[in-house]
């Protein structure tokens, strides 16, 4: 095989030189392949190291008091209850506001504006927002709602909603584009107006994919810290008042991880363990939900 290849590549050469050249090329290829396997192994090692660190340092502190006690001063056997509840509330607000907006924008892009100038502009801006630094979205909500009104849980939820929108837009548009045109034509031929064809035919057919997008968006914002720094601020006490500063798991982790108190650092690791495995579980569920489509 290698001799034939070399013969075609250099027919006039001495066969011994050709064989040597072929061997050299094979060796280079093998070397690069080995580097690629090594690169993949190193990447997986990073993930393994993160998961091992979380389990190693987090599992030891995991107990029922984490879920039943509030955050308390160091040495007081505190838990993370208010942080967990605050995170759930703010993530829910973000998803509740961001999802319908995102679905409507995705619908606009897929059904109404396939190649129009406005549609292209919206798609471009949404894609930029998808990767825009989340800390700037926090500053934006701070300027808009917090400056002069004070920190609040609703502001935290709003900043997460801004992050949710472009994620849902992306998946909704992609999924709606996969729906065959014939399905829409069939609906219209039966006399259904366009909006009914979209809502009752296209949404239903694309449900798996859209749900996947929503799950991924929730997974993304559940771990967001930077935007909450300037919006919901954090709260050491129990508070589900949307107008007041609200605690959240990432902010509590941030506060505790940098503290000199050992029990706080331990709680930070427990919180990190909870949030990471929650987020990774959501991701895996979302991927499994998407699988039949492929």
């Amino acid at each position: 095989m290698s001799a034939t290849a070399a013969a075609i590549a250099a027919p006039n050469r001495d066969p011994q030189v050709a064989t040597a050249l072929s061997r050299r090329r094979e060796r280079i290829s093998l070397f690069v392949k080995a580097l690629c396997v090594a690169a993949t192994a190193v990447s997986l090692l990073f993930l393994a190291s993160i998961l091992y660190t979380l389990l190693h340092l987090g599992l030891g502190g995991l107990s029922i008091t984490v879920f039943t006690h509030m955050t308390k001063p160091s040495g007081d056997n505190g838990g993370l209850l208010n942080a967990i509840v605050g995170s759930i509330i703010q993530t829910a607000i973000g998803a509740a506001i961001g999802t319908p907006v995102g679905i409507m924008v995705g619908t606009y892009l897929a059904e109404y504006a396939r190649a129009s100038a406005l549609g292209n502009a919206v798609r471009f801006v949404s894609d930029v927002l998808l990767s825009a630094p989340s800390i700037l979205i926090g500053l934006f909500i701070y300027q808009l709602f917090v400056n002069g009104h004070g920190y609040s849980g609703i502001a935290g939820g709003l900043s997460l909603a801004v992050i949710v929108i472009p994620i849902v837009v992306r998946t909704t548009e992609d999924m709606l584009r996969l729906i065959p045109l014939a399905l829409r034509e069939a609906a219209v031929a039966l006399g259904a107006p366009k909006w009914k064809a979209i809502v009752f035919i296209c949404y239903r057919a694309a449900l798996d994919g859209i749900a996947t997008g929503i799950l991924l968006a929730i997974a993304r914002v559940a771990g967001e810290t930077a935007p909450l720094l300037f919006t919901s601020l954090g709260n050491d006490n129990w508070s589900i008042d949307l107008g007041a500063p609200m605690s959240s798991l990432p902010l509590t982790i941030y506060q505790y991880a940098g503290s000199p108190a050992d029990d706080w650092v331990q709680l930070a690791w427990v919180g990190a363990l909870l949030i990471t495995f929650g987020v990774l579980a959501l991701n895996i569920i979302a991927r499994i939900a998407l699988r039949p489509r492929r």
Binding site: V101, Y112, V122, L136, I165, K196, I198
Partner: peptide, 27 residues
């Protein structure tokens, strides 16, 4: 019904543009 749905969809699209503009201007 069609007109309302289309208007809501277009409004949502325009909202994304406004959002980006608002972020830049507020900063």
């Amino acid at each position: 019904g069609d007109a309302i749905f289309a208007a809501v969809a277009v409004a949502a699209g325009v909202f994304v543009l406004v959002l980006l503009g608002a972020i830049i201007i507020s900063l």
